[in-house]
Simulated scan of single mutants.
Amino acid sequence: MLRTWHLCLLLLITTGLFAQPIDDEYFYGFKAGANYYSIDGIATTIIPPVFAAETYTVETAPRIGFVGGVYFYHRFPRSRTAIQPEVLFAMQGSDFNYTDINDLDYTISFNYQYVNLGVLLKVYPFAGFHFHAGPQVGFNVANTNINYRSNMPDLGPDLQIQQSLREVLKGETDINVNLGLGYDFDFGLCIEARYSLGMKDVIETLANGFNFIENSNKTQGYQVTVGWIIPFEPY
């Protein structure tokens, strides 16, 4: 039994020593996974301060969405660092839930979709394990994708209110800083997890009759992806 454990440990160590793309070569890859994102400050934007706080309750819930795209990779020669530019399609947003003392319940879902352009600096302390960090710019390609539903449509048709919300709350470009970690296996599989912190307002509040106000609405969230890396073949 002891010899079996020694053999397994040796195999793991041997695998780990080679569990990374070769340095000074170029690779491209594909990745897909899930986002878990939220948007801050929605309550302040939507609810006027004239309403007493004890008359209502609100909750901003993160949304789970798909993320996927392509990336490029280069490991610097004789170095523990690499660079990874990437282009990702991502579904990000939040659900804003409201309930008041008059039994009105409604949910506003911000179902934004982004094309994210980012670049990561990856540092490998050992084998294929790495830390990574870098900036990202997200272009909102569905900046009016807001859904509204309530339990009292007689107060105003949900579709009519939804259209009005889409006209006054516009999704904006997002800028993030990504921090994360991952592991690159020698056979091409790459697993990464990251935290993303928004640096700017992502909702523009236009002139409206709802008494909505302009406010700082920043994103934050988590992302887990699985990718496959492929070397560029010389001609």
Rank of each mutant, 00 (worst) to 15 (best):
L7T: 15
L17W: 13
T4F: 14
L2Y: 14
D158W: 00
I229R: 11
W228H: 08
L120D: 15
V177N: 03
T60W: 06
E214F: 05
G227C: 07
R75V: 02
L159P: 00
Q136W: 04
I146F: 01
M1G: 15
E204M: 11
V87W: 07
G33L: 04
V226R: 01
A61T: 15
F51V: 14
A82D: 01
E86W: 04
W228F: 15
Y148N: 00
G65A: 04
P157K: 08
L88S: 09
M152Y: 10
I22F: 11
L121W: 13
Y56P: 07
N143V: 02
Q223S: 14
P77Q: 11
D95A: 13
N116G: 07
D23S: 12
R80I: 01
L2F: 12
E54M: 09
G33W: 03
Y98R: 07
K218E: 04
L179I: 14
Y148A: 00
Y28P: 02
M199S: 09
V70N: 05
G68D: 03
F232G: 02
M1W: 10
F76Q: 06
A32L: 15
G29I: 01
K218Y: 10
N178I: 07
N97T: 09
S79E: 03
E214W: 05
L104W: 03
T81P: 00
Q163K: 12
G221Q: 03
D186Q: 13
L206Y: 11
